[in-house]
């Protein structure tokens, strides 16, 4: 009864489609891969060039002031980063951090405007919502395949995959934040004769900032998790150690690399959250 028709060759279609895209846009993908790759290499090697002690001190000082002159986060940062250095994972940490930094930045640059557009138009919202659901629920590994097709292996496809996986929260939260701005405040800004841009920048975005920041925090955490998975397509960093430990069933080195990722995750999370909460008061 279910055999209404023979199997629809979705997989084949997708293959052909991806190939066509790869060929048609290689003029675009190749330079992106080249220049972007160079830029990321430069970022990570300059980060690695800074002596670890200096990085640790800067992070600790930032942590101290961001968390309202409390020692907790600062002490954690010092101990955590020292431990990573102690385990000789410092260069890999810098690679991972570069990936997270670049992909989160791109996510925010792309995600916030789309979120604003969604909040302004119910049609755009209706179109974007299912796409966002799709992007978030598709197993993250799947993005690695077209990423390799488009950009080969290395950091750039890692960023591409993480972009697709990690952008949705920023878009969603921006949309939500702006839609949640109280109707009276929007009316007030309109009643005094605001233009659309004035309304957005003077009222809606400042009022939605908290929510948007929560979305960005999510995006950063998601891109960190994706960056680890991206090691499967040759993205450098702590994820690569986890992967090779998995392949060799070596619990010890897997655990050590994992701890490194956890420490990085906690520091990044607390930094983005406390920055947000501090501004609230």
């Amino acid at each position: 009864m279910l055999k209404l028709m023979s199997q629809i060759p979705i997989a084949d279609y997708t293959d052909t489609f991806t190939k066509k895209i790869t060929n048609a846009f290689s003029f675009l993908f190749d330079p992106i891969k080249e220049h972007f790759g160079n830029m990321m290499d430069f970022t990570s090697s300059s980060l690695s060039a800074i002596p670890p002690v200096v990085v640790i001190i800067i992070v600790a000082i930032l942590a101290f002031f961001l968390s309202g002159k409390k020692f907790g986060l600062a002490v954690f940062s010092i101990v955590g980063l020292w431990l990573i250095h102690n385990q000789e994972l410092w260069d890999k940490l810098m690679d991972t951090f570069t990936l997270v930094l670049i992909s989160s930045l791109l996510s925010v640059i792309i995600g916030v405007p789309i979120g604003i557009w969604m909040s302004k138009s119910s049609i755009v919202e209706a179109i974007c919502k299912p796409i966002l659901d799709f992007m978030q629920t598709m197993p993250a590994f799947v993005y690695l395949i077209p990423a390799v097709a488009f950009f080969g292996i290395g950091m750039v496809p890692g960023v591409f995959a993480s972009l697709i996986f990690a952008t949705p929260p920023t878009v969603r939260f921006t949309n939500l934040g702006i839609r949640q701005v109280s109707k009276e405040l929007v009316e007030a800004s309109e009643a005094f004769g605001s233009t659309g841009a004035q309304k957005l920048f003077k009222v809606e975005l400042p009022m939605a900032r908290q929510t948007i920041m929560a979305g960005i925090n999510q995006t950063v955490m998601l891109s960190l998790s994706m960056v680890v998975i991206a090691s499967m397509i040759g993205a450098p960093g702590l994820g690569r150690d986890v992967l090779s430990a998995l392949q060799r069933a070596s619990v010890g080195s897997g655990f050590v690399a994992g701890i490194g990722i956890v420490i990085l995750a906690i520091i990044i999370d607390r930094f983005t959250q406390t920055a947000n909460n501090k501004n609230k008061d």
């Binding site: 009276e184 400042p206 009022m207």
Partner: peptide, 9 residues
């Protein structure tokens, strides 16, 4: 305009 719930920023 002056609003019921003040609508201050």
């Amino acid at each position: 305009m002056v609003f019921q719930r003040f609508a201050l920023f």
